[in-house]
Amino acid sequence: MIKLKFTLNNLPQELNVPDNMRLLDILRDELNLTGTKEGCSVGECGACTVLMNGKAVCSCMILSCQVMDTDIETIENAEQDKILKTLQDSFLKTGAVQCGFCTPGMIMSAKALLLENLQPSEEQIKTALEGNLCRCTGYVQIIEAVQMAADILHQDS
């Protein structure tokens, strides 16, 4: 067991978890935050994307000991966070969600981009989301959604 201390969606967390747990398991099984999805378990699909210290990472690739002292943000933070909320709204408006399984990961990858760049080009959006697979949408409306959110947030800033 590891005694873990980290920040989750702006709140301090302390909990004991087994050594073999991945960040994904900690979120879903220990904390019941099931917004983060498990799609492939090998870092190929991005459904489990969360932010670690502001960077998009696959939570299936992070072992519990590596979570110590980090700042983790998940899709559940959409209730409080302006960027996530704006992305959520723009995903709905552009039809960027079909079955929805990839959506939380897509939105987290998009937030990592928007933290650094509120005027991204189409190429930059594609690079930010290249690790997130989607079977339904063909990605077109997802790109539109990120562009729309960026425009709104840029105008507000």
């Binding site: 039809g95 079977r135 063909g138």
Partner: peptide, 14 residues
């Protein structure tokens, strides 16, 4: 309309 376009984008890429 949005759904119809979504079917086309998704079907073409799949």
């Amino acid at each position: 309309l949005l759904g119809a376009q979504g079917q086309i984008y998704g079907g073409v890429v799949q």
